[in-house]
Computed example of a mutant assay.
Amino acid sequence: MPLSEYEQRVLEQMEQQLSSDDPKLVNTFQGRGTTSLRRWILCGTGALAGLVVLLIGAVLALPWLGVLGFIGMFVSVVLAFSTPRKGPAGVVGDDGSIRPRSKSRQREPGFMDRMEQRWDNRRDGDQR
């Protein structure tokens, strides 16, 4: 059953409101779900090959071959269900614009970095 004209308009308004309110969320949702068919086929083939190697190892009474087959199956299944590491092409700003990711990414200081800085400041006599 198709949507009425009014429902389509309301849906478009909601979509525009969401994209203006939270562009990072929209970018996150648009970047997911891109698992390719080729990835599934390769992982399925790897899992099947691992199963065959496992069975051959069991039939020939070679435990090391069975273990290798199991490891191959396990790795294939983990790769099939893990998300690709490829991140977004750019960074979404607060205004919704997408700018390219900088090559030299400066990370924010972590907990240990802050603790070391505080320790150094404390030893130098700078009490905070």
Rank of each mutant, 00 (worst) to 15 (best):
W119S: 11
G33H: 02
Q8D: 07
M14N: 08
N121G: 15
V92Q: 05
L18I: 13
M112K: 07
A61L: 10
P2N: 11
K86T: 10
D124N: 15
V78E: 05
G46W: 01
K86H: 04
G125V: 04
S4I: 05
R39F: 00
S102W: 04
D126Y: 06
Q13S: 11
Q117Y: 04
L55K: 12
G46M: 03
S19Y: 01
S19I: 03
E116K: 13
R32E: 11
Y6S: 12
W40L: 14
V77R: 02
V26A: 12
I56R: 13
W64H: 04
G66L: 07
V67I: 15
G93T: 13
M112S: 10
F74C: 07
Q17T: 13
D126M: 10
G33N: 07
G69N: 09
N27I: 00
F70G: 10
P100D: 10
V92I: 15
L3N: 06
V10T: 12
V77P: 02
V59Y: 10
L37S: 10
L60M: 14
W40S: 13
V52A: 12
G46L: 02
V59C: 06
G46I: 02
Q127C: 02
S76N: 05
M1K: 07
Q106G: 05
G66Q: 10
W40Q: 12
D124G: 15
R123G: 03
F74D: 06
T34V: 06
G72N: 01
M1P: 00
G93F: 04
E116F: 09
G31E: 04
I71R: 05
M1A: 09
L54V: 04
C43H: 02
T35L: 05
Q8L: 14
G72H: 00
M115V: 15
F70R: 02
L62R: 08
S82H: 01
L65G: 06
L51D: 05
L37P: 00
V78D: 04
R123Y: 02
L55F: 15
L60P: 01
P88I: 02
A47L: 12
L48V: 13
R105C: 03
V92F: 07
Q106H: 13
D22Q: 09
T34P: 00
R85Y: 00
V78Q: 06
S97N: 13
R32L: 13
L62V: 13
I71L: 14
R9T: 12
R85S: 07
R118V: 07
V26L: 12
R122T: 10
S4P: 01
V26S: 10
I41C: 06
G110F: 06
G57L: 04
R39P: 00
L65C: 08
P88M: 07
L3I: 00
A49W: 01
P100R: 09
L55H: 08
R107M: 08
R85D: 05
R114N: 10
R38W: 07
W40C: 09
P23R: 03
A61E: 14
G31L: 00
V75I: 07
K86E: 08
S104D: 14
R105M: 08
S76I: 03
R99V: 12
